[in-house]
């Protein structure tokens, strides 16, 4: 059954208010597909009835479930191979040249979802650095449900099939029943925490690289500008930002400069930006 426009508008307002994510008219199919499983879980077969149920003051958990369902996106291991190749061959050597060997590399996977990007980076860094260099990866997401899976490091066979090279599967995972478990040593290099990109960030360290891929597209221009400004403030002065292949800072935040590194476009704060940022912060 098609969703009524009043119900769609309620959901769009809720998601915009809580996560600053814009659901344009035309996304009704997405709302139906994502909310139907939630409706069934609480005994509704009709999306409209479920949305009215979620609107009741006592059902805050259902409203949050709606936000989570509409902010969770498909992910895969080593998504966009050219980005990881560019990171491995071009960006990582530059980082290693400019940082003292005792200083751990800090990387932020800023829309971590179920953790595939964060663990992919951990596998890549383990292969490239061995035990010679420490690194820390922080994964953040707005959704508690996806973060629970990311922390558990446990994936179904279907999830494992999505882009994970077989030699990595053999080296970094163990079969447990019908699922696969990330190697505990790899897990120790990765932590996950809840963070809403549309709200002020707190408690984050300075990062050498920020992966913020395929997430800005969901926000309006002013929210994108706010997020990019806050992201710059979390980056080391010579740190790098990596966006999705179809995303750019151009026309949004001109204090970033872009550099082409193999198959990767990376952004860094222009030389003038840090002082101005200090004053703003």
């Amino acid at each position: 059954m098609a969703i009524a426009s009043t119900d769609f508008n309620y959901v769009a307002d809720l998601v915009r208010r809580e996560a600053a994510i814009v659901l344009e008219p035309g996304k009704e199919y997405l709302v139906e597909a994502r909310l139907l499983p939630l409706a069934r879980e609480v005994g509704h077969t009709d999306i409209g009835q479920y949305i009215r149920h979620a609107q009741q003051p006592a059902n805050r958990d259902q409203r949050w479930a709606i936000v989570e369902a509409l902010t969770t996106n498909e992910t895969s291991w080593f998504r966009d191979a050219a980005v990881f190749e560019g990171f491995r061959k071009e960006l990582l050597p530059r980082l290693l040249e400019t940082r003292p060997a005792h200083q751990p590399l800090r990387i932020w996977s800023a829309a971590a979802s179920t953790g595939q990007e964060a663990y992919s980076l951990a596998m890549l860094l383990t292969e490239e650095l061995g035990i010679s260099r420490k690194f820390e990866i922080v994964g953040t997401d707005i959704s508690r449900a996806v973060l629970a899976q990311a922390r558990a490091g446990r994936y179904t066979q279907m999830e494992m099939n999505r882009g994970l090279p077989a030699r990595h599967l053999v080296r970094y995972f163990a079969r447990t029943g019908t699922a696969w478990q990330v190697d505990p040593q790899l897990q120790r290099c990765v932590s996950f925490r809840e963070l809403n990109l549309a709200a002020p960030f707190s408690g984050l360290p300075r990062f050498d690289v920020v992966f913020l891929r395929n997430v800005l597209i969901y926000f309006d221009l002013s929210t994108k500008q706010t997020i990019l400004r806050r992201v710059r403030q979390t980056m080391a002065s010579d740190g790098w930002l990596v966006l999705g292949t179809a995303e750019t800072t151009r026309g949004i935040d001109e204090e970033f400069e872009h550099t082409r590194l193999g198959g990767l476009t990376a952004y860094r704060a222009s030389a003038e930006a840090p002082l101005e940022l200090t004053r703003r912060a």
Binding site: S76, F78, A81, Q157, M158, M160, N161, R162, G163, P165, A166, L169
Partner: peptide, 20 residues
């Protein structure tokens, strides 16, 4: 074998293995 894909799979999983 250069790569390994476990059935069942999605079309995207095949494409990603070929990309690897």
């Amino acid at each position: 074998a250069h790569e390994y894909l476990i059935k069942p799979f999605t079309p995207d999983a095949v494409a990603e293995k070929l990309e690897i």
